[in-house]
Amino acid sequence: MTDTVDSTSDARTANNAVRHTYRVLSDTEKAQMQRVKDIGAAFIAELHAIGGTGLETDRFASRDLSLANTHAEDAVMRAVRHITK
């Protein structure tokens, strides 16, 4: 079993202990999922820039920025769940 699998790979169940079956995504759905994740990552990077913290840390400069990060992660997860359902 591999340690990591690209999220757009058809082999994405290889390291997932909970969800055992996935449908094969179309190329359009894979691109949508990648865009959503890229947008989320860019937003989180901007939160670090606003607070003056580096991407190498998971800590934010304030509780508000930490909450913004949590909500961004949730938004990405929910969008991906919609795409992959």
Rank of each mutant, 00 (worst) to 15 (best):
T2L: 00
T2D: 00
D6Q: 08
D6L: 12
D6A: 13
A11F: 09
A11N: 13
A14G: 01
N15Y: 02
N16S: 13
V18R: 10
R19F: 01
H20A: 05
R23D: 12
R23S: 09
V24D: 13
V24W: 01
V24M: 04
L25G: 02
S26V: 07
S26F: 07
E29G: 02
K30V: 08
M33V: 09
Q34F: 10
V36F: 09
D38K: 14
I39C: 03
G40N: 06
F43C: 11
I44Q: 08
I44F: 01
E46Q: 14
A49F: 08
I50F: 08
G52M: 11
T53Y: 08
T53R: 15
T53N: 05
L55F: 00
T57N: 05
D58V: 05
D58S: 14
R59S: 09
R59Y: 02
F60N: 03
A61Y: 11
D64T: 09
D64K: 09
L65M: 06
L65W: 06
S66P: 00
A68P: 01
A68Y: 12
N69Q: 09
N69H: 12
A72P: 02
A72H: 03
E73S: 08
D74R: 15
D74K: 14
D74P: 00
D74Q: 14
A75E: 06
R78C: 03
A79K: 04
A79L: 13
A79W: 01
V80N: 05
T84W: 02
K85C: 09
